[in-house]
Nucleic acid binder design. Structure first.
Lengths: 193, 193
DNA sequence: GGGCCCATGTAATTAGTTACATGATTAT
DNA sequence: ATAATCATGTAACTAATTACATGGGCCC
């Protein structure tokens, strides 16, 4: 699935500008789909070329003009077709877990710093992204509630695991460091970058 | 982080061929990092060019030759440098959750099929990938145990959530379908692809 | 005066997948 | 016989990120 389809999906929920779509990605899709301006704006242009969305330039007082996109009937059908044909993959790419996996090759304080930063980040996400509609979720579609609840369940479990394991894990890594060929190892070649 | 670094990481755990590295990716990294032959073999060639690994061609009886890669001292330093400089990102791209999010736009039986397939897939992963070293994890580094435990925690939580929500979610989606503009909508334009 | 929010876009680069190409052996 | 496993690699393509480019308004 590409960003084009996702943008069309956002537009299925209501008209929006490129900038606002990016906000939606950050607020609602963050835990399962990411996209930058560099992919959103070209995607929107292509959707227009295909006739799946229409644009209206909205002048704003003391703001740059806004281009508000609205899905067409053809766009709706195209979206349904795309979704129906979509293979439901589920990929994670986590440099965080790679770093934990190779924790014994990191400089002494890095594993703790990386782990704590992730704990903080996920705690924040849990508070901000997943609590917004905690009880009053009447406005959401079943799918939105499901995806949100999934994220909440997973983040909660991840945080619980990280809290539980943190101290033991860090101690064991330190012990492994001491046993193996430690970090300041040749010493010099590491400074730059 | 690119596949090059990960291959070097695998080689830090012991010598290996491209084919075996792929197996390692599938067995150990599957839940947080994926890579295909199309990226592994070129990566290995680059690592060799850089002097970070050495190759030995191993003849085999009744098998194609195997190229066994071994990390060099320079490779070890390069790996540590890379890992030290690495920003610990954590990205998920899930067409599965996109499909659930837009479940009301799917043909009637698709949400259930997709959800059940994911439940089955994750159940299988939990049994195969995460149980192998359930108690006897003496051989593993702390990092390996941490990453494995993380995956197990997350998959377990995801499965619990999906089991808990399944029936209600599916019923609500069906109800939304009935209310809104349903799937066999124009009817025709959907057959192909 | 510095930094963030609004707002849109392009170009260069990076990084990866999929399909192709080959071919013997082993298990069902 | 048919599929899976072992084994390596390339070429075409897809898709996205990052950095660049621009500029006013608002808040501290």
């Amino acid at each position: 699935m590409d960003v084009r389809t996702l943008c069309l999906g956002v537009l299925a929920l209501g008209e929006s500008s490129g900038y606002e779509i990016k906000k939606t990605f950050e607020q609602s899709f963050h835990h399962f789909f990411g996209a930058s301006y560099g992919s959103i704006y070209p995607a929107l242009a292509e959707l227009e070329r295909a006739g799946w969305v229409e644009v209206e330039a909205v002048e704003q007082s003391k703001r740059p003009d806004k281009k508000v996109y609205r899905m067409t009937r053809a766009g709706r059908l195209a979206l349904e077709e795309r979704l129906a044909a979509e293979a439901p993959r589920h990929r994670v790419r986590s440099e965080f877990l790679v770093l934990m996996y190779f924790a014994h090759l990191l400089p002494p304080n890095r594993p703790a710093a990386v782990l704590d930063a992730m704990i903080e980040r996920m705690t924040h996400t849990l508070e901000v992204e997943f609590s917004t509609c905690d009880a009053g979720d009447a406005e959401l579609t079943p799918g939105q509630r499901f995806a949100l609840g999934y994220g909440r369940a997973v983040y909660t479990a991840a945080l619980r695991y990280m809290h539980e394991q943190r101290d033991d894990f860090l101690a064991e890594v330190a012990a492994t460091d001491a046993a193996g060929p430690g970090w300041p190892d040749g010493g010099l070649a590491v400074a730059g970058e």
